[in-house]
């Protein structure tokens, strides 16, 4: 082409005092994703609702625990995990799918066409939000079970082997489940698909298989992401689980490793789809 045109005049015109015109970096995308997460009111309600559900479950179950039940003090405080994982799964799924369900993907990926920094930032932002929510939920559960402890439920004794690890494990497992939800959401892009898959993997599958104990079902159970719940058990409870199973012995950290592998594998698939396939 030979025509001479005022090509980049407009592009180079800068407002006074404006910084250099540079593109997306991970910290910038991270700031943007944090703004996105916190600017949707339903996300904040979801986190609050999760805290209430966790503390409420712990309160309810705590009322029925007696000293001779064989339940530990950490179990009482973390017993809300049953419901908690649903909240965290939804939180992750919402972050992972909302780009695609609302059409925001067009705006987001036009601004960050390399795309993967967005997924990376979503992982960090979701992990941070889940971490804060889980810690708050744990604190709320502790407060909510104070009455139960006064009334006969076992006290929270951190000198019990594995008790402090179980409390930390609650937070880690919550973050893990949220990230699994995010990964499924980013991979499947539809909230219903991602949520159903997540619930099957995290809750239903384990329950169904537990109804038919055996070598095969116990092995499959051990390899489902629901194994992450082992992180919530103290040493005595882990020993009891390992004694009962006919599948592989996962030991102290095996359950957490299984959950982490699931998160990484599904995230990898989501990253592949995002990088190589059309969006919007």
């Amino acid at each position: 082409m030979t025509t001479v045109v005022p090509a980049a005049r407009a592009g180079r015109r800068r407002p006074h005092g404006a910084p250099a015109r540079t593109g997306p970096t991970l910290p910038r995308v991270l700031a943007a994703e944090w703004t996105k997460l916190t600017s949707v009111r339903s996300n904040v309600w979801l986190a609050l609702g999760t805290v209430v559900a966790v503390a409420g479950t712990a309160y309810g179950l705590g009322m029925f625990v007696r000293p001779d039940d064989g339940r530990s003090g950490s179990w009482v405080v973390t017993s809300g995990f049953v419901l908690a994982q649903l909240g965290f799964l939804v939180l992750g799924t919402v972050v992972g799918t909302s780009e695609h369900t609302t059409g925001t993907a067009r705006t987001t990926f036009a601004a960050v066409p390399r795309r993967l920094p967005v997924l990376g930032a979503q992982v960090l932002v979701t992990a941070a939000a889940a971490l804060v929510t889980a810690v708050v939920a744990l604190g709320a559960s502790y407060v909510a079970t104070a009455d139960a402890r006064a009334g006969g439920a076992p006290g929270l004794d951190l000198s019990v082997p594995g008790a402090s690890r179980a409390l930390l494990g609650f937070v880690v497992a919550c973050v893990g489940v949220a990230l699994l939800g995010l990964a499924l959401g980013a991979l499947l892009r539809r909230p219903a698909d991602a949520l159903v898959t997540g619930v099957v993997l995290v809750v239903v599958g384990d329950q169904l298989l537990a109804a038919n104990p055996g070598r095969v079902t116990d092995t499959v159970r051990a390899l489902l992401p629901s194994s992450g719940a082992r992180l919530l058990q103290d040493d005595a409870a882990l020993a009891a689980l390992d004694a009962a199973t006919r599948g592989p012995q996962l030991g102290t950290w095996g359950g957490g490793v299984v959950l982490a592998v699931w998160v990484l594998a599904v995230l990898g698939a989501a990253a592949y789809r995002l990088r190589w396939h059309d969006v919007g």
Binding site: P19, R21, T22, G23, P24, T25, R28, V29, A31, A32, E33, T35, K36, S39, V40, R41, S42, S98, T102, G103, T104, A105, R106, T107, A110, A111, V112, G280
Partner: peptide, 26 residues
């Protein structure tokens, strides 16, 4: 780029939508 007016999360304010976009480029 403006491809579709419905490229915004309905639960987000106009200001926050644009802010998140702006933040990606500092």
């Amino acid at each position: 780029v403006m491809l579709d007016a419905r490229s915004v999360h309905p639960g987000r304010t106009a200001y926050k939508h644009l802010l998140a976009m702006a933040q990606t480029h500092g």
